[in-house]
Simulated assay, not measured.
Amino acid sequence: MADKAIPDISLGGAEQNMSREELAAVAKAIAALSQEDRDLLGAVQESPCRLTTTEQFLEFEKNADCFVLEPHVQTMEALGWEYLKEKLTIDLTDDLRAAIDPAPFGRHALEEDCGCFTSRGYLYPSGDEWQHDRPQEKPADRKPSIKERLEQSKQECMGKNKAPAPHKGKSEPEL
């Protein structure tokens, strides 16, 4: 990247689709991140979850909670021990620890978390929904969806059909 102030973050090829102005905005946004968030972004960029658009880079700071980075977890075995520590309700003695192969537990955790290992540690999505900076459309400016239009037509038809229909056939005798 052209900005030497943030050499530890790769844009993963996204920079090829950015204008100079967008690159400058992304560089500024990354430079404004805390070191912890920069490490997190670096890990995200090494993962299949990497950011690919200018908008994502600009929104990253307020969406950092969408990812969890465990820098101390660097191997499948370490991940397995973390998984066991989280799931077990008993403390393991040294004898029990020696009898356990943590790697299968690590593989299970990796699949369960949809995580991956990066040079910065173990990364996985938190499950939080990404929040966009785009302003929400005003209802008056928004065109109704097809579903909304069909529902509206249905309501209109039902309203027309509620008027009493003229009675066809013989009238009943009055009493």
Results as ranks from 00 to 15, higher is better:
31 A>G: 04
50 R>D: 10
11 L>K: 07
67 F>P: 10
37 D>H: 07
10 S>T: 02
93 T>A: 11
19 S>A: 00
51 L>H: 03
114 C>V: 01
123 L>I: 04
41 L>S: 02
111 E>C: 01
34 S>L: 06
124 Y>S: 05
25 A>W: 10
23 L>G: 12
75 T>F: 14
13 G>K: 01
119 S>R: 03
40 L>G: 08
116 C>F: 09
107 R>A: 13
45 Q>M: 05
83 Y>Q: 06
91 D>K: 15
36 E>I: 08
90 I>Y: 00
67 F>L: 12
95 D>S: 03
31 A>C: 06
43 A>L: 14
125 P>Y: 02
99 A>L: 11
95 D>K: 00
19 S>V: 04
26 V>Q: 13
133 D>E: 15
108 H>V: 00
70 E>W: 03
119 S>F: 12
117 F>E: 00
32 A>K: 08
95 D>E: 12
47 S>C: 02
106 G>T: 06
107 R>G: 08
74 Q>H: 04
57 F>W: 09
73 V>C: 07
116 C>P: 02
19 S>G: 14
115 G>W: 01
28 K>M: 05
82 E>W: 09
90 I>M: 07
76 M>C: 06
101 D>Q: 15
133 D>V: 07
30 I>M: 01
61 E>D: 11
12 G>W: 02
48 P>E: 15
99 A>S: 00
105 F>Q: 13
19 S>K: 13
93 T>S: 15
57 F>L: 01
84 L>Q: 12
